[in-house]
């Protein structure tokens, strides 16, 4: 097999997704809200449907706004149910996203006689197709570079996320580890929570439009958890998560290219393989991480110390 320009772009798009996701994803893992990405990517359906009903077209921007808005709503409703109803947060997340998804289905059925929403990429993702969708071209010397639209979008999202995390690093860190301490320091932990959720929603929606939701969920959680096994420092953890995510994108694409022919099949889906690659990195860290690896600890005879779930504390009722 040869390596073409398009392969490079696929890897670049995957890597940008990984970076965009690793930034909020690390905080999700620390706050024990890893399933939020999954919940949001299912729950945005009514947002897409309403945007479609209002504009009557599949224009990207209204769809994006609608989906991101409902994504934030998912987080808000989850928080309400878990604080007012004293329901476990996982359960309230499940209730909210299944309900929103069902509402979305009803809306779509009522709206269109045949479903005309962009069907392709939502669940499985079509990173290969995304790479063909060129947004702008320029040339360096005689080298013509065609930048895909999703690379531009994801690049912008990554940059925004980076700016946000750098600007609010201290606030995010304190409110993730100890919301009460954050409050005594004059940081609005509730506000930080919702800002982070907005970031997750925007990232999820932007990325799944380009590359499909399964890879977004994988990139949000798995690299961050892998990095969590490797280090105790938050800054380093975010960096490692981005790096591991990007590496997974590369190896995932390689696997998608080379594995199917090896076992007698024609081809496969790249996003699926990228998710598998993040899983492989996780298993490696799980077993062999220098301090927290399972095998490492067995060899060194160390016991696993389960720290108290510091970040788990739900926000206090006010």
């Amino acid at each position: 097999m040869n390596w073409y320009w398009i392969d490079t772009w696929i890897v670049v798009i995957g890597a940008l997704t990984a970076i965009a996701c690793a930034l909020p994803g690390s905080f999700l893992v620390l706050r024990q809200m890893s399933m939020m990405g999954d919940a949001i990517s299912h729950a945005v359906l009514p947002g897409l449907a309403i945007a479609f009903l209002v504009t009557g077209a599949r224009a990207s921007l209204p769809m994006f706004v609608g989906a991101a808005f409902v994504g934030v709503l998912t987080a808000v409703f989850t928080q309400w149910i878990s604080t007012w109803g004293k329901v476990d947060r996982g359960a309230s997340m499940g209730i909210v996203f299944t309900t929103l998804f069902a509402i979305g289905l009803l809306l779509i059925v009522q709206a269109a006689d045949h479903v005309d929403l962009d069907p392709g990429c939502v669940l499985y993702g079509a990173i290969e197709v995304a790479a063909w969708d060129v947004a702008w071209t320029f040339s360096i010397g005689d080298l013509l570079i065609e930048v895909p639209r999703s690379a531009v979008v994801l690049g912008i999202v990554s940059l925004l996320n980076l700016v946000f995390v750098v600007a609010f690093f201290k606030e995010l860190r304190i409110s993730s580890f100890d919301p009460d301490l954050a409050t005594t320091q004059g940081i609005n932990a509730q506000l930080m929570h919702y800002l982070l959720m907005t970031q997750v929603a925007v990232t999820t929606v932007a990325a799944f439009e380009a590359v499909g939701s399964i890879i977004v969920i994988a990139m949000l959680v798995t690299p961050a958890a892998t990095a969590h096994l490797l280090t105790d420092r938050l800054g380093l953890m975010i960096f490692l998560a981005s790096l591991i995510g990007a590496a997974s994108a590369f190896f995932g694409h390689l696997m998608a290219l080379y594995i199917p022919p090896m076992i007698g099949f024609e081809s496969t889906t790249t996003t699926g393989m990228m998710a598998v690659a993040t899983g492989i990195f996780f298993v490696l860290a799980w077993l062999f991480a220098p301090r927290y690896g399972w095998i490492t600890r067995l060899v060194l005879g160390k016991k696993l110390i389960k720290e108290k779930p510091v970040g788990a504390k739900p926000l206090k009722e006010s």
Partner: peptide, 28 residues
Amino acid sequence: TSRIKDDAAMGIVLSVFFGAGVAILGMV
């Protein structure tokens, strides 16, 4: 066996297994 909590473990299994499933169906 690790410091990873329930929620992250579920997220990892969900996405990686589903990804593997998508990849396998893609081959099939």
